[in-house]
Design a protein around this nucleic acid. Structure first.
Lengths: 236, 236
DNA sequence: TAGTTTTATATTGTATTCAATTTGTATTTT
DNA sequence: AAAATACAAATTGAATACAATATAAAACTA
């Protein structure tokens, strides 16, 4: 009866976490204690503890007497994100290059394999989760309690932004993702070589690529229909 | 009955927070649910929720089936701290200078007044809490959800480090604190002027001052007793 | 009919009870 | 006497029951 109960709680935790990261639960969505309690056959007491934890990590927002909701994303979010991400991520990768242990490097390579296969045959959610896992490991490598909280908070919205600004059909975006995968490989190399400067530079490149992806989404190539062409279907 | 209950919870929260920041609860100390539940006449359920929240913010560490304890501080802590602090705090102050609203600037001035009077007539704990409050406000000003988690985590150990490495009797340390207060004034000025560069520079200066304080503590001026002097108490 | 007040329902917060895990102590065994 | 086991006490985790708050719906007033 011990593993069952423990796993019920961590199952709920993992379920909520991945649902939020993959936008299966949208930003701002309300969570219902009663129904979740039912679905996971878990009483409300431990359920609320999971809520508190997720709130502490930035997944949820708790409002007094008014239930939990998924952390929101507004426009200012994007700006704040790209303001903070290069700095924090640069620091994390630099520290990762300085401190990574061999077993962690192996874990990172394994995560990159999963990411690569998600690129080939996985869903958007698979890709987002695999990418998230990759970066989580770099956070473990950096091993700095003061930087990790912000880094983890960034990773949440990194996943959500990636899910939001992506059209699988788009050729340019596919190329963009492939480039991201290449950067992952370079990150692994820099970490294994202990090359801090290279790692920090790759961090900047990686976030710039994310920014480019958003641009591809926001400013699509215009439709190829000349002005006024609808009126004179058969040209004179 | 509503405010009473709500305040009981936030009372507990504030009590634990300040106890931890002022080292009234030492790093690594175990917390007893039962006795706290008694002291605050609050049942264990809401008490444990407070624990979870404090754990999420970095004050406590929760261990499965083994109770909560105050977040530990090891020697690697100091290194990690001074590695992360200048960067994060620099960013926070820069953003504070860019975004601060007038009412927030007023709040900051008020906090600085409290700090100043704590320097004159307050206990070490008073001083630490007032300094903490000052910096918390700069975090509010910066208003970036991605940086705040790390910043708040830094503030916890900023307070604890300050409490640890300080001898009130020491002249040099008193001068050091007075300098810190002067820097606070400069920070206020930079924020009100919207001078981002100056704010960022002040952040670096401020943390360097903290580092100097630790040096004063760790490397005290040697005792003024010549070798062998104890033997010949009355000089020839 | 629009707006306000009242009442009912649903949801959240807390207390209590019960179950499971850990830890310390005593007993047994070698 | 040292180690191992078994037992007992204490502590933590989860479920149920109860209380308070918020939301909605209905009734009422102007």
């Amino acid at each position: 009866m011990k593993d069952a109960a423990r796993s019920k709680k961590s199952e709920l935790y993992e379920h909520l976490k991945s649902s939020i990261l993959t936008l299966s639960l949208s930003p701002g969505a309300d969570l219902d204690e009663a129904s979740l309690s039912n679905d996971f056959s878990l009483s409300r007491t431990p359920l609320r503890e999971v809520f508190r934890q997720l709130a502490g990590e930035g997944f949820l927002e708790l409002r007094e007497n008014r239930g939990a909701r998924v952390s929101g994303m507004s426009y200012t979010t994007l700006r704040d994100f790209f303001l903070a991400a290069p700095m924090v991520y640069g620091a994390i990768l630099q520290l990762a290059a300085a401190n990574a242990r061999p077993d962690q490097a192996e874990a990172l390579k394994a995560a990159q394999e999963v990411f690569r296969s998600a690129l080939r045959s996985g869903s958007g959610a698979d890709r987002a989760m695999a990418n998230n896992r990759f970066h989580e490991i770099t956070g473990d490598m950096a091993d700095n309690v003061y930087l990790l909280p912000s880094f983890k908070r960034l990773l949440i919205d990194h996943a959500r932004i990636g899910m939001t600004f992506y059209r699988p059909q788009d050729q340019a975006m596919a190329a963009n993702l492939s480039e991201a995968s290449t950067q992952h490989d370079a990150i692994i190399a820099a970490i294994e070589a202990g090359d801090e400067a290279a790692a920090a530079q790759l961090a900047t490149d990686h976030w710039n690529l994310s920014r480019d992806q958003i641009e591809l989404f926001v400013t699509p190539t215009g439709l190829d229909v000349p002005l006024g062409s609808m009126a004179r279907k058969t040209p004179a």
